[in-house]
Design a protein around this nucleic acid. Structure first.
Lengths: 219, 219
DNA sequence: CAAGTATTCAATTAATCTCTTGAATAGTAG
DNA sequence: CTACTATTCAAGAGATTAATTGAATACTTG
């Protein structure tokens, strides 16, 4: 009976995908790719890995079917192979958050008071933005902003936030977002804006999830 | 700046969950656990692993927060730590199916003609079962059947199917299911029932997904 | 065609993972 | 208390993996 072998072969294929998700560096690559296409050395730069190492990780991701590469001129641009990869990534994060006690501890340690930073849901933001009630702040680097962002958002990378803080004297509540639910940039931004006495909250999750939910995107 | 460290720590936690999913044996354990509680040696028996090895894999799954153990008397009963684990498992399978070319090839190799085995969706089965139009066949072992099954289903393990085939002379279409979308038992069952000239199809996915969808369960 | 750039390949070392084996623990039953 | 069972722990051999380094490939530009 080949049924046992078949089953095992099949699970081995699933395991290959699992293995691709078993390295923090590869997950970080995936998170960046969730923003859109990136070349190998852009990815190497943001993750701090060597180019060769980045390339090897990308190939593992490709073999697992999670990313695809497109060669144009000198460069190879990688991107997620489908939206279901974002779904998978989020399912993984969900389980990790709900079950791994260490994550809770980490989040609480690093992010001071949790309740103070209660996030605003996507749909609520969309509604209030239409009414002009909020100022949406995208704290990602300009390249990522350029590749797509929440309509009406203004782009101030975290590093430059300090110098623009005074100009932000609107009555509106400020809503900051960045790459994903745990991107620390948005937490930091909210904390700093609040120090200046403004009302500020964080968007629940980040841009990839916004895009995935089919909400409008501006370029 | 601890932001980089925080991020890396967080991804390391996610990676721990990914690592738990990186072994075919552990995935097989998860699939069995999706049926319900199991003791260590039941799991060792069905997977064909040694008890010690099974125990170690279970502990990795537990550290990743995917399963939980409950000690009662001599035995320790393990179960999934939540429904989101099934969601994660299915997301993983989905991605693997959609992207890994090898899986397609495998499925086609082992399962002969694919179109002939077109599965019936859960809701359609539920509707037709209420009208008494189908005979639902659960081909899992009796213990798994006892722990919960689709209402009205009859339980004939695959091994005993041959001898009951003649008694199955209803006009109804027969719908077989087992553990999950790729559980081979149901494929085999459908093939055999058809050889006898009956109409037969496979339920799309298996019992854990049925339960997860909130559909009625009988004990 | 030559020089330069982006990416990949190949080889190495150190670290990690899997499975096996045999012993230790915790609970049950006589 | 002793024998027995189910599970876990601990140690070791063999295989797999990650990161580093240096070279090879593929493409563009002058």
């Amino acid at each position: 009976m080949s049924s046992g072998n078949f089953k095992h072969d099949l699970f081995s294929q699933f395991a290959r995908v699992g293995k691709a998700l078993s390295s923090a560096n590869r997950l970080e690559l995936l998170e960046f790719l969730a923003q859109g296409e990136r070349s190998v050395d852009e990815l190497a730069t943001v993750t701090g890995l060597t180019v060769a190492n980045t390339s090897q990780h990308l190939q593992q991701l490709r073999q697992a079917g999670l990313v695809a590469g497109r060669k144009q001129g000198l460069k190879v641009y990688y991107s997620l192979s489908g939206d279901d990869v974002i779904t998978l990534f989020n399912a993984l994060r969900s389980v990790a958050e709900r079950h791994v006690a260490d994550v809770e501890r980490l989040v609480n340690t690093y992010l001071t008071v949790k309740d103070d930073l209660e996030p605003i849901p996507r749909k609520e933001l969309l509604a209030r933005a239409k009414q002009g009630l909020v100022t949406v702040l995208d704290v990602r680097p300009p390249e990522e902003f350029a590749a797509g962002h929440v309509p009406g958002a203004i782009n101030i990378p975290l590093k430059e936030l300090e110098q623009y803080l005074d100009q932000l004297e609107s009555e509106n509540e400020i809503v900051a977002y960045c790459r994903g639910a745990h991107c620390v940039l948005a937490f930091d931004a909210v904390a700093r804006v609040r120090q200046k006495g403004h009302k500020a909250r964080r968007l629940e999750e980040g841009f990839p999830e916004w895009k995935l939910a089919g909400l409008p995107v501006e370029r």
